[in-house]
């Protein structure tokens, strides 16, 4: 169970990111969406006391935010990497500001110790997500058009289909899924801490590349990262300093990227 628990946020965020990859851009704001939704969920839960309301309202707000993000990016013809970075930056600013306004703190928001949050259903969602995504991409109209959007905008335009819809919706899907990942983290911790996603959003991006932009590849990428994470939690109890362990996944990722792209170059040259 531990391994699935560790995999869930990665799976949600990276499969979400995969949709934007299919639409032809990279959503570098996954980290921001995870943190933002964790914050929204805990805040709304603390205020209303309702589990259901916490999730729905947080997701509705995330949909709204990701819509604004993608709509402006498309309509202003902005560089999506830059706007993604801007969203990350803006979200962290917004979170601290609202947190300070509401709770007079910029640190951790705790829920009551007796709170029990059921997060197991999110694990199930995360585990069926790769297969569901394969089905959507290969068998449905939305999937076909999404893939085409990523390859050629003009093809859609010449068929009189609005290409912007597919890019905007992809960012919203990735926002929702990354948001669920963030909510999952908040449920596990029963609190919000400012650095709750701890680089998971960025690692999810890396997993997408590592998994060659394929749902099954991504599943195994998540597996590898979860194992290292569990291992690092485990070895923290041993003599290895935690900082070195924290640096490990980043270096491992880079090595993995080099190894996978090396084979790719060979393949192309043959």
């Amino acid at each position: 169970m531990d391994i699935f628990q560790a995999m869930t946020p990665f799976l949600l965020a990276s499969i979400g990111g995969l949709y934007t990859e299919y639409s032809g851009t990279t959503n570098v704001a996954i980290e921001g969406y995870m943190t933002m939704s964790a914050f929204l969920f805990i805040t709304i839960y603390k205020i209303t006391g309702s589990y259901f309301l916490g999730i729905t309202l947080a997701l509705i707000l995330i949909i709204l935010l990701s819509f604004i993000h993608s709509y402006l990016t498309v309509k202003l013809k902005a560089n999506s990497i830059i706007t993604g970075l801007a969203v990350n930056m803006g979200f962290f600013g917004l979170i601290s500001t609202i947190e300070f306004k509401l709770f007079n703190t910029k640190g951790v928001i705790f829920l009551e110790r007796t709170t029990r949050l059921d997060s197991s259903w999110l694990i199930v969602v995360a585990l069926i997500l790769p297969l569901l995504t394969m089905f959507i991409i290969n068998k449905t109209r939305y999937g076909l058009r999404l893939r085409i959007r990523g390859i050629s905008k003009k093809t859609l335009m010449y068929s009189n289909i609005n290409p912007d819809f597919y890019r905007i919706s992809a960012v919203i899907v990735s926002g929702i899924l990354a948001g669920l990942g963030g909510i999952f983290l908040a449920m596990e911790l029963r609190s919000f801490i400012p650095n709750i996603s701890a680089g998971r959003g960025w690692i999810s991006l890396v997993i997408i590349y590592l998994g060659r932009k394929h749902p099954i590849g991504i599943f195994f990428g998540c597996l590898i990262f979860s194992i290292t994470q569990i291992f690092s939690n485990f070895s923290q109890k041993m003599a290895i300093p935690s900082d070195i362990i924290l640096a490990f996944p980043y270096i491992l990722t880079l090595v993995a990227l080099i190894l996978t792209s090396r084979t790719k170059v060979k393949k192309d040259s043959l």
Binding site: K139, T140, R141, Y142, L144, I148, S159
Partner: peptide, 14 residues
Amino acid sequence: IIIGVEPCKMGFLI
């Protein structure tokens, strides 16, 4: 060929 006017079952399955 079908891009744009995909014949669909239940409105979304190609």
